[in-house]
Each structure stands twice: as structure tokens, then as C-alpha cells.
Amino acid sequence: MFAFIAKRARNAVLLLFLASVLCFALVVSAPGNVAILIAELRTPTATKADIAKVEEELGLNKPLLERYGFWLNGAIHGDFGISYKTGEAVGASLKSRLAVTATLVAGGAVVAFLLSLFVGFVGALWAHRAPDVVTRGSALLGASTPSFFVGALLVYAFSVTWHVFPTFGFAGPVSWVLPWLTLGFLPAAVLSRVVRVGFEEAMAKPYVLTAMSKGLSRTSILVRDAIPNIAPTYLNALGTQIGTMVVGAVVVEPLFAWQGIGDLFLTGVRFRDFMVVQACLLVFITFFIILNVVVDICITLTDPRLRLQRS
């Protein structure tokens, strides 16, 4: 088992390195000269000499390989260079914004986890009866409603009508609830179907007949026999959904005026602030790679057959 984790970690580092190359290559090959952009920002009548000076400052006149090495070395130490637009260190703003996005995605993931298990369980316990039909219907509706619309509805209900939660802002747990619900709603709908279908399949298996022959109740069969069997599938889907939630954060952050990474990335793209774009890309990719490794390890831990095979 330990060897398996070590191997996965090694592969992840390798993949991260490749990703950094890709990030760098993408940004370097983007059209437009950054030096001209910055020189013109400083003095609208920038000359060739001004541009050359900017290139010198940013190290843009050096060979590509050297620039890459310099950038990578900085990135490893948390220094992602200077934002072309604001002149601030990208690393510093990344840190504060990472906390915001992490709060959003972590909360959304918890919402998706709890809600999907609850809804899926209700559906399985009252299979093919009213609660099942209702939860299935709402899951279908939830899975096909875009999050900005869900967010708008939630704001209308809880902020405008009932004044329970603030409409926007990042100021303490009360202000976090609506963004969490907004981000977690769609994944919860998708995941609840995974739970429900998983239960349905598991409950038709011969080992359920064995469990019934032991005299176990339907609820304990669901908990003891079905859950261990659907756990790997569920964790896999949960990992995928957390991945999509990072993408969803790009939509949900502006909705509640949160200064997160998604927001940073969008402004970076808009202003061709390549240092910022590069840094955000790297953060996203790193997150996805780590997520994949964690999901893989979790699946292996929950599936005894895989555990045997991989250790």
C-alpha cells in the first residue's frame, strides 16, 4: 500500500513538471508583446528604448529556457513574479485569494457530500415510492439548472425575501452559506443519482439475499452491505465533482463578489496579465493532480480487491 502511494506521488510530481512546461509554453506563445503593453501603460508615448527597458526589467530578452528556469524556481518558492497590471507580487495576492476559493470549494464539497448522501439514501429507503419520486425529480431539475440561476434564486429567497443571509461579500460564516449552497447544489444533484443508482444495483446483488437471510433489516443492509460496495464509485464521482466545482467557482465568485482565484484568473485573462494567468493555471493544475491522487488512494483504500492488486 505504501509503495502504491509513493508511486502515485512520484507520478504526480512528474506530471506537475510537465504541466508547468505547458503553462509556460501557453503563455509565452500567446499573441501580443507584453513589454509594449506595459511600456504604453507607463507612458502612452513609449519609444523603442522604453520597451527595451521594460523587457530588460522583466527578463523578457533572455533565452526561453532561462526564463522558464527562473520562473519555475520562483514558483517553487512561492514567487510567481510581478503582476504586469498592478505591479504587485502575484504570489501575495494568490495567497489571500486561495483562502477565499478554498473556503468556497471546501464548503461546497461538504454541501454536495451531505446533501447527495441524504437525498440518495431517502430515495433508496423508500425506493419507488413518493419520497424517491420527489428526490429523483428534484435531482433531475438540480442537475440541469446552471449555478448562476440557483444562486440568483437563493439570493432572492434568503436575502431579499427573508433577510436571513447577506446578498454578497466575504465576511464570516453567515455570508458563506449562500455561496456554498449555490456551488454545492448541482454536484449534490448529480451525486445523489450516483448514490441512488448505486444502492439500486447493490440491493439486487445475491449478497443482499444473504444479508436478508441473516435477519438484517433493510436499513442495516443499506448501511452495512450496500455502502461499502458503492463507496469506490461514489468517491470517484465526488472527486470529479470537486474538480468541476473549482471551475464552478469562477462563476460563483463574481456572483457574490468574492475575491477568489476564479476572479483573479478572469481579470488576468482580460488584461493579458500573463504572470497572473500563468500562476492561476499552475494552481488549478496542481489542485487537479493532487485531487486525482487523493481520489485514487481513497478508492484503493475502500475497495479490497483493488487494494490487493495494488499492494
Partner: peptide, 10 residues
Amino acid sequence: DPMSALNPAR
């Protein structure tokens, strides 16, 4: 069939 009657995950 003892192959399928036991729970594979426990």
C-alpha cells in the same frame, strides 16, 4: 453460489 453470496467489500 458462495462466489456471489458473500459481500465482496467486507
